[in-house]
Write a protein that binds this DNA or RNA. Structure first.
Lengths: 189, 189
DNA sequence: TTCGCTTTTTGCCAAATGACAAACGATTTC
DNA sequence: GAAATCGTTTGTCATTTGGCAAAAAGCGAA
């Protein structure tokens, strides 16, 4: 929980009492490798914060291929924000790629905190906006670069992910085949 | 201004008085083709809403190539949100691709409205979040598809843009060369 | 250890895309 | 109207990447 408190205080100030209120609502959640945090076709009802482990967001394209849209690792928020906020069915899966330990909030508690704690909504807004901007910033450059450069960029962005997740996930994240990625890895070592 | 009011009312309710307040702060801005709305290296100080015309967000990659990150057309917000909110230098240009007519708000007026109108912050948050989610949703699929499918997707997403902007902008948006795009166009007609 | 399963690497060839240059077309300028 | 300019198309060839299949490596269970 300490890590989460540190995280939120980056975005604004809260007093001890407010932090306690928030802490009380959060609970620890264990996800095993391959478990889903939220699923396509369902409404996301939880907000998480990763203490340990890696998750990914993925979906199936119109050819039935599984595409990893992005990875989320330690000390980051994990929530299918569009589904969570608008209570609409999600179009993606959020899945644990390794065993994970999270701080987790149920939607109704999260909402209660928003209604109770003055300034919390602003902090939440900033957290969400930052996470979304980060996703755009990370995903965009991939489009305009060749496969090797994409992989190099991936290594820079996710320095702690490369060796902990299957090659297939990274390949689909980069939009290349598994064999291409394998060859790229060979070339750069 | 009518279009902008319609747009914001999608995200929440406001009474006549509140709408008047907002309307009074907005002014019409004309941008000529190639003018910048905001620039890399500067802090964005305005929020815009496009009544007429097309803008794009672009930047220069480490090879000095100009990359179009996305297009923004009629009835959409245009703001370099990270720069505007955090008052940090922007890393991208927002440029008029055609002559444009916008509703525009200065930062201080925008801020004043946020402080004055109850519920306006929630509406703004929703607008921003939706725009950011849309950017992720549009940019992401491009990574995993071949050039022809990217272009087809582009046509679907921006049905009113293809014939109004230079081929070079679209090619850089799709991450392909001009000649490739030209050939793709030939093939699909 | 050995077997069975999954993941990763490799080989071979085909297809897609890029690089570069030239041609073409439309538009503007003088 | 000729020349210059800018954007688009086309040609040629090299390079990258994909598709497919087989081999190799890694890993857990019996």
């Amino acid at each position: 929980m300490k890590e989460f408190v540190e995280y939120i205080l980056q975005f604004g100030n809260l007093n001890k009492q407010q932090i306690d209120l928030i802490s009380k609502k959060g609970f620890e959640l264990i996800l095993h490798k391959d478990d889903y945090f939220s699923q396509a076709g369902k409404i996301a009802r939880q907000v998480g914060f990763i203490l340990e482990g890696i998750t990914r967001v993925c979906y199936y394209n119109n050819k039935g291929e599984e595409i990893t849209k992005y990875f989320i690792d330690e000390n980051n928020l994990v929530v299918d924000i569009e589904s969570f906020e608008n209570e609409i069915c999600s179009s993606a899966y959020v899945q644990a790629v390794t065993d994970c330990r999270l701080i987790c909030f149920e939607k109704k508690d999260w909402q209660e905190l928003l209604d109770t704690i003055i300034g919390w909504d602003t902090i939440v807004h900033k957290m969400i906006a930052k996470a979304l901007i980060q996703k755009v910033e990370r995903r965009s450059p991939l489009v305009s670069e060749d496969a090797t450069e994409r992989y190099m960029k991936f290594l820079k962005i996710y320095p702690n992910v490369a060796n902990r997740v299957p090659l297939a996930y990274i390949a689909s994240y980069l939009g290349i085949t598994q064999s291409s990625l394998s060859r790229i890895r060979k070339n750069i070592r």
